[in-house]
């Protein structure tokens, strides 16, 4: 086709990617609002079945990068936390084409699905003609709109650890309205508390800075502690989080974003009895 490639298999796609400067086109919903030069070529990925898988194995919930939000919402394998976030993205027509891989590759701090992948420490499978690498999603983000992919590399799958994906969770989103709303602040938290011991605790903040904010080293302040111990550590934890959360001004002010983030965080602690 003119200005485009529509490979039917992964090998062919990676081959094209290695030889050309074609831009991978997953669902198109981010690409189509950008102005591109007339000689731009798209690499259409919708025919590649491998990129559409949704499955679970003993360790991971696995989904292909070109799964649309609708496909993920309709799958019984998709963890509830991810479904909660996806259900509040845009509106049905967008969810029917927009993909989870596109959401990640666009590297927006407002990416709602990516926020969930971040809080669950999801692994990203990246393929090129030369091989495969698997990296934690947090390593992928270099800055707003910048992602650590080499020429010829394609995000192909997400591996969300089962022991993170199904923990008690909290998802919050501030948008300007109830649908078709781009996040102005978003929050996701997961926690594992059994017999009064905190075995896991993770938080992530979206739409407040250049990248999604995830601070495992701070969340670690609460891990391994009993609820009572956590209550003691709470002040220090909140103070450090307060320090690390440096929002930027956008459609809403930095001060508002900060206040809401801290409110969500405190609320999440309270839900866990901390």
């Amino acid at each position: 086709m003119v200005n485009g490639y529509a490979p039917s298999g992964m090998r062919e796609a990676l081959d094209i990617l290695s030889k050309t400067s074609a831009i991978p086109y997953a669902g198109g919903t981010d690409l189509m609002i950008q102005e591109v030069p007339a000689d731009t070529n798209y690499l259409f990925l919708h025919r590649i079945r491998d990129l559409k898988c949704i499955t679970v194995d003993a360790e991971y919930f696995i989904c292909g990068a070109c799964c649309t939000y609708t496909e993920l919402l309709n799958s019984r394998h998709t963890p509830d936390l991810l479904k909660e976030a996806i259900a509040r993205i845009a509106a049905p027509a967008i969810r029917n084409t927009a993909t989870i891989g596109g959401n990640v590759a666009n590297a927006s701090p407002k990416a709602d699905a990516a926020l969930i992948l971040m809080v669950t420490d999801t692994l990203v499978r990246i393929q090129s003609k030369n091989g495969v690498r698997i990296v934690p999603i947090s390593d992928l983000y270099l800055g707003r709109g910048q992602i650590d992919l080499l020429p010829g590399e394609l995000i192909t799958e997400f591996w969300m650890p089962n022991n993170r994906a199904h923990l008690p969770h909290s998802y919050e989103k501030v948008g300007g309205r109830k649908a078709l709303a781009i996040s102005r602040v978003s929050f996701a938290g997961i926690s594992d508390v059994s017999d009064g011991q905190i075995t896991h605790f993770a938080t992530a903040f979206g739409a407040v800075s250049d990248v999604i904010i995830r601070r495992p080293e701070l969340d670690a302040l609460l891990i391994g502690k009993s609820i009572e111990e956590a209550k003691v550590a709470k002040e220090e934890y909140l103070a450090k989080m307060d320090e690390t959360l440096v929002p930027i001004q956008g459609r809403v002010s930095a001060a508002y974003r900060k206040a809401v983030c801290m409110n969500f965080l405190e609320d999440f602690l309270a839900k866990n009895g901390i």
């Binding site: 086709m1 200005n3 485009g4 490639y5 529509a6 086109y25 198109g28 919903t29 690409l31 189509m32 609002i33 798209y42 259409f44 919708h46 027509a93 967008i94 029917n96 084409t97």
Partner: peptide, 10 residues
Amino acid sequence: VNSCMVAMGF
């Protein structure tokens, strides 16, 4: 789908 958000190759 929103036809403004779909490229012909798709």
